[in-house]
Design a binder for these strands. Structure first.
Lengths: 229, 229
DNA sequence: GTTACTTTCGGAACGTGTTCGGAAAGTCGG
DNA sequence: CCGACTTTCCGAACACGTTCCGAAAGTAAC
């Protein structure tokens, strides 16, 4: 049976390590040696503590990376949101996308963690920017959340795919799709010919985002507004 | 200086292991024990060979997974493509999406590998299905490839995010965005209230895909057709 | 002081992907 | 037959994330 709560102060061995300390040390380590060097053992050594000690303060490395990413996203300067709801969606999505795409190891975190925790406190402003326009477009808040979610899927996919293509160049045998392949196998692609390299390098996110937002808003507006699907 | 090419047959120690053998053994291992049990050492032991031997036939584990995924995607029964170009895009994208989403470790492969190699031979039919409709919509093949690429980004993101959310349930401290959070912090979300669980479980891919396709095609058609941006 | 309890810490160990260096086993030219 | 060369194989080792279990160090009750 558990002992009654202690009257004053904590019991047990005094802690030498705090979660905040771990996070700041991790940020230092990343800034100094690069995020590839961020390893549990190295981080523990940096703090001057055993490696297994860290596991009493974080669940695992994925947890650590998510905490770091949250801190990073919180520091993004929030974009000045235009008055037009459509532009507001585009502005907020672009801000988040550019921040993540510009941070090399953000893709790694997204790869490892996917979605959990990323937006727990840090990027709610993007959701808010989208949901706030629900009235202006005559759709329900629920539909607006779906709009956000779809845009988030697209953004994550774009960042991950592009980051990986850059990190792992195609070798001789196995060609990356966008860096070159046997176009003759696909009849309609023969016309493109040698434009593949230029195609691969192009940044299609802004255009794709606009198209997606337009399509989503048109759908949300037309399909039984105010009705719950 | 290299020796002149051998007149007949290969020189060197005869190989006991082939890439095809590795792949079939890997498939057996996955089918029998689950994909979590697919490890380099275990796979080598299954073949009856040293672990490091595999590295003379595959680049690394990521390479192995991509080869396996390619084989799997090749086996997908290709959807009957409708005559309408828009429906054709949707049908092909849905077929690929459902196949990947239904295979538990496809998400893992996508997570590890992102994009490289996935479509080198296996899913070109999806690209073809999209590019083939370029004429019908009055856009260039290059624009059609962009359409494909954006849809691919969206599909990958959706699969990865959803797969991860399912695999890593939120703990007490850190709530997944779609499983519940303090809606009071976002004024416009207060109206949603307790609908979050239902929101999280909903499958938004089909709707999002249609919206995206419509938006992309509208954009490709309107903006200076036949002109290279 | 002694005992009970609670919390924090960390060394040892496991399984992982991967690299390195050398051994094994063939063919080829003398 | 014999050395040179080439290709394949593999044991040893490394760094990694993570788990187990016991030691350390404090407070609380007696």
């Amino acid at each position: 049976m558990p002992r009654p709560p202690s009257p004053h102060g904590r019991t047990g061995r005094p802690r030498l390590t705090s979660r905040a300390q771990i996070l700041t040390a991790a940020r230092q380590l990343i800034d100094r040696d690069g995020w590839e060097k961020l390893t549990i053992r190295r981080l523990a050594a940096e703090i001057g503590v055993g490696a297994t000690t860290l596991y009493h303060h974080i669940r695992d490395k994925e947890d650590l990376l998510v905490l770091l990413l949250n801190h990073y996203v919180e520091q993004i300067e929030r974009p000045r949101l235009p008055s037009d709801p459509r532009d507001r969606i585009i502005a907020s999505a672009t801000a988040l996308h550019d921040a993540l795409a510009g941070w090399p190891w953000a893709a790694e975190v997204l790869t490892v963690d996917g979605f959990v925790g990323l937006l727990d406190e840090s990027a709610l402003w993007m959701v808010e920017a989208i949901v706030a326009g629900a009235d202006d477009y005559g759709c329900t808040p629920v539909q607006a959340v779906d709009v956000f979610r779809n845009i988030w899927y697209y953004t994550v996919g774009e960042i991950l795919v592009r980051a990986h293509s850059a990190r792992r160049p195609a070798d001789d045998e196995r060609l990356t799709f966008f860096s070159g392949f046997d176009a003759a196998q696909v009849p309609h692609l023969a016309a493109i010919g040698d434009q593949w390299p230029a195609l691969a390098a192009r940044d299609t996110y802004p255009q794709g985002l606009r198209a997606f937002v337009d399509g989503l808003l048109a759908q949300a507006t037309s399909a039984t507004p105010r009705g719950v699907a």
